[in-house]
Design a protein around this nucleic acid. Structure first.
Length: 504
RNA sequence: GCCCCCAUCGUCUAGAGGCCUAGGACGCCACCCUUUCAAGGUGGAGAUCACCGGUUCGAAUCCGGUUGGGGGUACCA
């Protein structure tokens, strides 16, 4: 029997980090055993489903590198796989047929209860401290009674007879789970009054129709699993194996939510998290290799992944750890690759500065390539590139006079030092403007004047970049170029003393 | 309320009866390197393995209970 798993997102919001993790575990499991990874869109909640979300989800999964073997047609490309269509709203006849079958076999029935009646039932049950459940008012209607209700114009839902007994299954991560059908809340609605199927029904009809062998999903579905198993049985379908993954948690250990955490994959992408780090991190949320390594590319995760090594307790999403992994992955990327990923972030940053009225220059890839050694180890996220190098591309940098003066110095000393530094830089630069020479001559200057090299360098750093934290100074000066270095040193001197009184 | 699941450093985890005076990683602290910031290196603090009882010569590991946390309980998915 060949393994078939699926990821079945609902296009009711942008791709959620939890959905991405569930997709990943399904993907890893499928690839590890040479099975098939199916993508199915569960869009039966017409009120909340949107095409834009669907695209976001598909693009996100694709971006992370999880190609599906079977899935819906997208952007003009035909559906892949023999079990299509892969959007539930395009599979309505299938649910209709399945529901009719259950109806014919009296495993399901029409229910005409109004929302008001159901609400009243629930209120009464609550008052009596009973668990909420459907009372079965319509469970045994005669044809006449049904006729009366139809005549009133009531549109029925279809309910599935849950029956009595204990449903037991062997969860691949949790072991044996047994739940009494009494805890299920009575006969459950499987088809809405408008004829569309509800999740618990469509998911089973489809998993059966698509020959899914393993259902790997979040723990939030664990209590609902008996409903599904009962439905599989009623439909005469082979029930799949189940594996319920631990939930991803907010810092307060509740189920990760938009309200308390950043849940949209897109938001992480826009901050400059690389896909390798996200995949790596998501895999480590609930799974561990059992070794002491923690950096794994996708293909290695595929070879190592086992459901048996999945944790059963929930895992708090730890952004710090994600950032660390991101830095690790950024350091590992090939030059060309990193440049390509960095460019959009840098361009966006500069474009934003331009919008704010600053004069900026947009560098080409070659120019950014030259900066790579200066920034590579300083990027926890790709979006950190702007603040690291934008002073190179902005005509007029803002310099704070207060920051210009090193802690141990006074303005006079600083002015003198910058003046001397300008002279030395000009002298050196007239021969060759290179990092080693600049460093040697400026160190010599500091020594001859009894200044701490660090203080001198800090004054220069702030003068030419406007910042106290930058890539290494001399490489920065070279990147800036001779002329702009001199210009900025002069501008900084002006800041410390009016031009008229500036020492020549 | 009822049902189900879970429980090892702040966080992610290793651990499947003796290898555990509980290991690794993130974060934190210190030192080294160093022109700043990073990165890197070294070291450190940090967990009476939720609690109680049992099984056993021996338990973080097995069993029971307690407590705590989470999830589910819709004409949402």
């Amino acid at each position: 029997m060949t393994v078939r798993v699926r990821i079945a997102p609902s296009p009711t919001g942008p791709l959620h980090i939890g959905t991405a993790r569930t997709a990943l575990f399904n993907y890893l499991f499928a690839r590890h055993v040479g099975g098939t990874f199916v993508l199915r869109l569960e869009d039966t909640d017409a009120a909340r489903s949107e095409l834009g979300y669907e695209r976001d989800i598909l693009e996100g999964l694709h971006w992370l590198g999880m190609e599906w073997d079977e899935g819906p047609e997208v952007a003009g490309l035909p559906a892949r796989g023999p079990y299509g269509p892969y959007r539930q709203m395009e599979r309505l006849p299938l649910y209709k047929e399945a529901a009719d079958r259950l109806l014919a076999e009296d495993k399901a029935y029409y229910c005409y209860c109004t929302p008001e009646e159901l609400a009243a039932d629930r209120a009464a049950q609550e008052a009596n401290h009973e668990p909420p459940h459907y009372v079965g008012r319509c469970a045994h209607l005669t044809p006449e009674e049904r006729g009366e209700r139809e005549a009133e114009g009531r549109k029925p839902v279809i309910r599935f007879r849950v029956g009595e007994g204990v449903v037991e299954f062997d969860d691949l991560v949790r072991g044996n789970v047994a739940i009494d059908t009494k805890a299920l809340g009575g006969d459950l609605v499987i088809v809405r009054s408008d004829g569309t199927p509800l999740y618990h029904f469509s998911v089973v009809v489809d998993d059966a129709a698509m020959a899914i062998t393993h259902v790997i999903r979040g723990e939030d579905h664990l209590s609902n699993t008996p409903k599904h198993i009962l439905l599989f049985r009623a439909l005469g379908a082979q029930e799949p194996k189940f594996a319920h993954l631990p939930l991803i948690l907010n810092a307060d250990r509740t189920k990760m939510s938009k309200r308390k955490s950043q849940t949209a994959l897109d938001a992480y992408k826009e901050e400059g998290f690389v896909k390798e780090a996200i995949v790596n991190y998501l895999a480590l949320l609930g799974w561990s290799s059992g070794t002491e390594e923690d950096i794994f590319p996708l293909d290695e995760l595929v070879t190592r992944f086992e459901l048996a090594r999945v944790q059963s307790a929930g895992a708090v999403f730890d952004r710090e750890r994600l950032e660390w992994l991101n830095g690790q992955w950024i350091r590992r990327l090939a030059d060309d690759d990193l440049i390509e990923r960095l460019m959009p972030f840098l361009m966006d940053d500069l474009a934003e500065r331009a919008r704010q009225g600053e004069q900026v220059r947009f560098p080409g890839q070659d120019e950014v390539a030259a900066l790579l050694p200066l920034v590579r180890e300083r990027l926890p996220v790709l979006s950190a590139i702007g603040p690291l190098v934008d002073f190179l591309f902005i005509e007029e940098i803002a310099v704070d006079p207060a920051q210009l003066v090193p802690k141990r110095w006074d303005p006079e000393t600083t002015l003198e030092a910058l003046t001397e530094a300008r002279r030395v830089a000009a002298d050196t630069g007239s021969v060759s403007f290179e990092a080693d020479e600049l460093e040697a001559s400026l160190r010599a200057l500091a020594e001859s004047r009894g200044w701490k090299a660090g203080d001198l360098f800090m004054a220069i750093r702030v003068a030419v970049t406007g910042r106290t934290a930058t890539p290494p100074l001399f490489d920065t000066l070279v990147a800036l170029g001779y002329e702009r270095t001199i210009e900025r040193l002069d501008a900084a001197r002006d800041l410390l003393a009016p031009a008229t009184s500036r020492p020549a």
